[in-house]
Design a binder for these strands. Structure first.
Length: 173
DNA sequence: CCCGTGATTTAT
DNA sequence: TAAATCACGGGG
């Protein structure tokens, strides 16, 4: 929600981060810091962090308490509040550039660290609902290695990115 | 391709 | 305390 208006989209691209064993995860080897502490919450909470001096990224915590696994939301197909999103993201020249990346979608929906740790099930500022007008056939789910984790050794190549095949709002095919 | 930008982490 | 890093995005 932003100023009483609802900004929303359908999740079309995600990546899984598997906790202490995953060299690409912020919680690799059980690291627990001020930044990543919300990854240790019960599943259904948000983990929002700030990086590169200008971008935010949003994750959905996916494990139980002290089991720090999460799903990074990498792209949305925007559905409500497109005009507000265009204002929030002046650099986006086409609507497919509004939410086609983890930093982009946070800018488009005004998601910042202020929302870190929020409950995405019961929240009224930031939440996730089941998408109920369109199903997604399993055959339309693409799988690939994760993006931007080349430093992670063997974990760099694991097939942990999932996206909707052919959807133009995905960050890259 | 290269660069901004600054919080966070990791090394002294 | 200091240096390096970074789950990115925009512009050339």
């Amino acid at each position: 929600m932003l100023g009483g208006e609802r900004l929303s989209g359908i999740i079309v691209e995600t990546e899984a981060y598997l906790g202490a064993i995953d060299a690409a995860a912020h919680t690799y080897r059980g690291r627990r810091t001020q930044r990543n502490q919300s990854m240790f919450l019960e599943g259904g909470h948000a983990y929002v962090y700030f990086t590169y001096g200008m971008h935010h990224c949003m994750n959905v915590v996916a494990g139980h308490v002290d089991e720090p696994v999460a799903v990074l939301i990498r792209a949305l197909e925007p559905t409500e509040g497109l005009d507000a999103m265009r204002t929030l993201r002046p650099a986006a020249r086409k609507d497919t550039a509004l939410c086609s990346g983890p930093g982009k979608l946070c800018q488009a929906l005004s998601i910042t660290r202020l929302l870190d740790g929020n409950d995405l099930v019961t929240g009224d500022a930031l939440w996730i609902e089941q998408e109920r007008t369109r199903g997604l056939p399993v055959k339309l789910i693409g799988v690939s290695p994760r993006i931007g984790v080349a430093y992670a050794g063997e974990w760099a190549d694991k097939p942990l990115r999932f996206f909707v095949l052919g959807n133009p709002h995905v960050s890259r095919p």
